[in-house]
Design a protein around this nucleic acid. Structure first.
Lengths: 198, 198
DNA sequence: TTATTTTGTTTCGACTCGCTACAGTAGTGT
DNA sequence: ACACTACTGTAGCGAGTCGAAACAAAATAA
């Protein structure tokens, strides 16, 4: 009887939301809290996103879709982070409407105090194969969920059907550009699951 | 240079938070949205919690710990739901400070329009053994995380070390009371993992 | 050229959130 | 009895979030 927190589909959703909430909250252990407490959950999410997104996806619009909110709200969050000096704006070279966001060095410093680090450490205590299986299952669920509500899926280029790896570099058919190796692991808005499970 | 995004522990945390966010957002498919859109994410979480918590845990304080927030914030959320007629207050029989929250019939009706239903459905598309493995892994992670920040763990009595099942009914050594069968699957504040995996 | 779409911004009102301060009750110790 | 501490729930403040709406500017399609 003492198996686990168990149970079929319904509880798992609650468990995921609960874990996410717990992982994002700073916790009251008061060590690095003093420094990290300044940012809100949405601001942390934005900072994390722009640090992980590739150059085609570092725009307010892309973040708003990633964060499942409106462009207006995303714009405000970006504005606050720019005002703090953690993000910086750059004009897009060809598209006059678009602005490209960069994480400043102060932003990268701030990311060292990410309150989600504890969740990461807790997850690293899982066996590697378990972690991999969970990641695979949740990735699949993200695809299903996004598909059922016409939302774009976010993923890294290394798993994208638009990308073609040859020899050293890779080519993305979607953005029609060459990608460097580090960019292959970054988040992309135009992600398309390569081998979607039916 | 740009850290190691690596497929290991780091991505999984982001994936969990992303999935949670996606699952809680109502989605723009506009079917049951008109009815469901009235409640905010925090209000949905509260409504879900009080519907699932056992009688010892249906208090504003317990919810504030579950939701990783302060009692003040939790009090406001509860107040708004009471004003909508979805929750009702009851005086605690012996403790004059405490109030017990109940979900009204209107609250149960509202729960049928839970925007998280889509996430639940997406999770049910996973193979049962996969779902079980994910639930087990995430439950373990919740324990680890809560332990590392001195936060209480929430779980159902059927997995709790305080509980002792005999014949028909069960006895909880923590609250010193008998529990009915349905109560065994409810959420409890005083949960203690029965066989915590080291 | 004239629509139409896309991008980003601003403003508004309602809500969340952490914080502080506070009243009332419970349990403890003297 | 008494004070003292701990706990419960609440109210108000300020900053932030969020969705909605309206807007200007640039890109794209017709």
């Amino acid at each position: 009887m003492s198996t686990d927190i168990s149970a079929s589909g319904s509880d798992l959703a609650d468990l995921i939301v609960y874990l996410s909430r717990l992982g994002q909250s700073p916790g009251r252990n008061g060590i690095a809290v003093a420094q990290a407490q300044n940012l809100t959950a949405a601001q942390w999410t934005a900072l994390r996103y722009f640090a992980r997104a590739n150059r085609f996806s570092r725009t307010p619009s892309a973040f708003s879709e990633f964060h499942a909110t409106t462009r207006g709200t995303a714009s405000q969050t970006v504005k606050s982070l720019v005002a703090m000096g953690l993000l910086s704006r750059q004009m897009h070279e060809t598209d006059g409407r678009s602005t490209v966001i960069e994480v400043t060095s102060a932003g990268h410093d701030m990311l060292r105090h990410d309150p989600m680090a504890e969740l990461r450490r807790a997850l690293e205590r899982l066996a590697p194969e378990t972690r991999e299986a969970v990641a695979q299952a949740l990735g699949q669920t993200v695809s299903h969920l996004a598909q059922s509500r016409n939302a774009p899926v976010f993923g890294s280029c290394s798993d994208c059907s638009h990308c073609q790896t040859e020899a050293g570099a890779s080519y993305c058919h979607c953005t029609q550009s060459l990608l460097s190796l580090p960019e292959m692991d970054a988040i992309c808005v135009d992600f398309q699951p390569s081998r979607s499970t039916a």
